[in-house]
Simulated assay, not measured.
Amino acid sequence: MTSELRKTIRRAGGRHRAAIMLPVLLAGCVSPSAPQRVSTPTPPVRVVQPRVVPPGATPRPPAMLLSELERLGRGFDGVVGIAVRDVQAGWSVSWNGTGRFPQQSVSKLWVALTLLDAVDRGTLRLEDPITVRRSDLTLFHQPVRAMMGPDGFTTSIRNLLTIAMTQSDNTANDVLLQRVGGPSAVRAFFTRASISGIAFGPGEKLLQSRIAGMEWKPEYAGGQGWLVARAALPLEVRRAALERYLADPMDGAQPEGMVAALARLRKGDILSPGSTQVLLSIMAQSKTGPQRLKGGLGENWAFAHKTGTGQELGSLATGYNDVGLLTAPDGRTFAVAVMIASTRQPIWARMQLMQNVTRAVVSFAGARPS
């Protein structure tokens, strides 16, 4: 253990000690490895007091909601960031909102935005054909594999985008990423669209391999070979790779940056009206995470979102996320992000935290005049 990690653990103290002496590894809609007893530190995400970020002379953020987010953030046994932004009014509130959290499959949202931006610029069409071949297969969750014939799977860009976003298909996403020009194209899009506080990783195959302390090889296509190779790695190699990733996640994002970008998407500030509607419609059809943020919805509320699920090692979970747009019956919309960097809490407790954040927003909206 490095002297820096010892200092981090001493600073954490009390109830945060268990959240710092932890292990990890899997991702973007994955299946956990066999339990192992290991001690690995959680990411050095800076835990800050809840921040109010009024953009200019906007209405004051609600103290009631801010207080509830603080209560939920403090009460969760793990490293969590929470942010909520009122799309129409412009205020935002957060707990640990400027920490950098692993996105995992939330990053598929940025591939979708980059692709639709290319459609708006006339370099792609949603009805263009695209083929997924066996050599394109990645790892973990990839339903598109079952759709392949001897010559692969040919469909439209629109359909492959829907598969990537609604089913969090890693292979579909990576094929679309290459079609738009790779990670550098996404980063260039961030610059053009003035999106800040969000990083984009090297793509699913390379990201997950580096998290595990491996290098991707073509023979790993499909995932089973990759899992066998990872299982053969010495534990110290995996732990060291994990520490590097959590200390400086290649796909790190700030919850505040996340809700700012989602709010701009909803307002039509990033894509054309047609492309905005396409993406929001696809996000509303998401099949992943029905009991995360969505599980706390009030009657007649709508939700469009993207989840992310990171690698696990033993009882430690990482990158357990849900971000999206909550729309009230009266049309008022809130961008919400809950990002759990690491925790030993079971799935039901993670989902309960997310549902309680949604309930806090619903309660706030119901307590004020339209």
Rank of each mutant, 00 (worst) to 15 (best):
Y220K: 06
W95D: 00
A328P: 03
I270A: 04
E256N: 13
R133C: 08
G366L: 03
R264C: 07
A349N: 08
A63D: 14
R244M: 04
G314F: 12
A63N: 07
R210I: 01
S92P: 05
G225Y: 11
M64K: 03
T288W: 06
L26F: 13
V45A: 13
L115F: 00
G257Q: 07
F189A: 08
P143F: 00
P202A: 00
R51W: 02
S94Y: 05
K7N: 10
R332S: 14
A261C: 11
R264L: 04
G310W: 12
I82K: 06
P23K: 04
G81T: 06
I130A: 08
R60A: 15
S286T: 15
E204H: 13
M21G: 08
Q49V: 00
M165S: 02
A188N: 15
A164C: 11
P59G: 12
D120A: 12
M214V: 06
G182C: 05
G298Y: 08
P32H: 00
R179H: 01
L235R: 14
L161S: 06
G97H: 08
V48M: 12
G274Y: 07
R192G: 03
F153T: 05
F101S: 00
N170S: 06
G152I: 11
T154I: 09
M250E: 12
A63E: 10
A284R: 14
R11Q: 10
L124C: 09
R37W: 09
A229Q: 07
P59V: 08
